[in-house]
Amino acid sequence: MTGPSLSSETLHVSCVAKDGRAILIAGRSGAGKSDLALRLIDRGAKLVSDDYTVLKRVDGRLVATPPRNIAGKMEVRGVGLIEFDAVGDVPVCLAVDLDRDVERLPEMHDPLVVAGVKVPVIGLSALEPSAPVKVELALAQFGLTVT
């Protein structure tokens, strides 16, 4: 999940925002990116983008926004394409990697680097019932702050 040092990139990640802080959700196709995003939305998060997210470096921070052609749309497996209120230009504060090994007692290391900006990343199993709560706890524990 490491990209070159560009001023913007489009990544195959879903993204939601919780309290003005964006959370990237990365993983292979079928790993549960959209499912986890949907459960976070059910807990009060806002959709930024489903499946692909535009990430820009702005004043040293990484900012997430949806690509125009999919803004406000989420594929809900078994239901179809659903419209949601979406937000954009949200500072990225945490990345969740659904392909990374889940550590019992994680230490923050090997950040995600996108457009030259480092973001804390955790490994998580998306389909566990507690996954949305774990994301919120990780955001509070490891996530970058917005000033």
Rank of each mutant, 00 (worst) to 15 (best):
D19P: 07
G27Y: 01
D50L: 11
S29P: 06
S125Y: 08
L47P: 03
T2F: 12
E128M: 14
A26W: 07
A22E: 05
V90Q: 06
S5I: 06
L11H: 06
A126P: 02
R21I: 00
P132H: 09
P67C: 13
V114G: 04
P120E: 06
D101F: 13
M108Q: 13
V117K: 00
R43W: 09
R43C: 09
T65C: 10
G123C: 01
D99N: 10
V113K: 15
D97P: 09
H109D: 15
V79S: 12
P67M: 11
G20H: 03
V96M: 01
G78W: 08
G30I: 08
I41Q: 08
A71N: 02
S49I: 02
G3H: 12
A86Q: 03
V90M: 10
V63I: 14
I70G: 04
S8V: 05
S34Q: 07
D97R: 03
I82F: 08
V76I: 05
G80E: 09
L94G: 02
V58N: 14
M1A: 13
D51Y: 08
A71H: 04
R43E: 14
L47C: 05
L6V: 11
H12P: 12
V117Y: 05
C15K: 05
R104V: 13
G80R: 03
V96T: 00
F84S: 01
I82N: 04
K33I: 00
G44K: 07
P66M: 02
L94V: 08
V48L: 02
E107H: 15
Y52C: 12
A86M: 14
G44R: 09
A22R: 07
I23E: 01
D89I: 01
V92L: 03
G27W: 02
H12V: 11
E75S: 13
S125A: 12
K33M: 02
S49K: 00
L11M: 05
E136C: 10
G116I: 07
L144N: 09
T53Q: 00
Q141G: 10
D35V: 03
V133L: 10
V133A: 07
F84L: 01
L36D: 00
S130L: 12
R68D: 15
D110P: 02
I25Q: 00
L40P: 04
D101E: 10
A45G: 04
V79E: 11
I82S: 02
T147E: 15
P67F: 12
D19M: 07
C93M: 00
S8W: 12
D110S: 10
G143T: 08
C93T: 03
P91H: 06
S130C: 05
H109A: 15
K56I: 04
P129Q: 10
P67K: 11
P67Q: 06
D51E: 08
E9F: 09
D101A: 13
F142D: 03
D59Y: 05
V121H: 02
